[in-house]
């Protein structure tokens, strides 16, 4: 088996999966992930729908996405163990070592902050990459297009300042 699939195979496979999820033969709703993150967070921290308005709002769509995320985890695990055989414990991505630093502590602190910003930001906007950009874009939703432009634009600008220039010695 090849170690990875090219972009167009990935794109086609992804849209076939989206058709399944979106149509009445499948789940009759588009795929999203960050509401599920929020749902799991509320579950872990014991924020019950009876006491928190937001937990009540996402009670249904959050449960759907949380169950989907369980599937996502096992889908990734299955592929990394049996197909790509890339499963190994690692702490710092190669490109981070090249363009930022080699400190495990620094990577962990930034990961935590970035994870916080990702879910908090996604909740503020009402969706993330999958919900807004992929599913939203596919439905030609105005919200998805605005989110894509703002998020990717900010990311590219932040990347310029946050990382070192290519070829710079660490």
């Amino acid at each position: 088996m090849p170690k990875s699939i090219p972009w167009w195979v990935g794109g086609i496979a992804m849209s076939l999966l989206f058709y399944l999820s979106f149509s009445v033969w499948g789940a009759d709703r588009p795929i999203g992930a960050s509401t599920g993150m929020s749902y799991i967070a509320n579950m872990l921290f014991g924020l019950e729908p009876e006491n928190y308005k937001y937990a009540e709002i996402i009670k249904e769509s959050g449960a759907w996405e949380a169950v989907m995320l369980i599937g996502v985890f096992f889908g990734g695990l299955f592929m990394s163990v049996f197909v790509t055989k890339t499963f190994h414990i690692s702490y710092i991505p190669t490109l981070w070592k090249e363009r930022k630093n080699k400190s495990v502590k620094s990577r962990m602190i930034w990961s935590f902050i970035a994870g916080f910003l990702l879910v908090f930001g996604a909740r503020l906007a009402g969706g993330c990459n999958s919900g807004h950009i992929l599913s939203g874009g596919s439905q030609v939703a105005v919200s998805g297009i605005i989110f894509a432009v703002v998020a990717l634009g900010t990311g590219i600008i932040t990347g310029r300042f946050f990382y070192k220039k290519k070829g710079c010695k660490v």
């Binding site: 994870g115 910003l117 990702l118 930001g121 990459n129």
Partner: peptide, 9 residues
């Protein structure tokens, strides 16, 4: 949200 998300991403 998009700005925070982009930075995190």
């Amino acid at each position: 949200g998009g700005i925070l998300f982009g930075i995190g991403l």
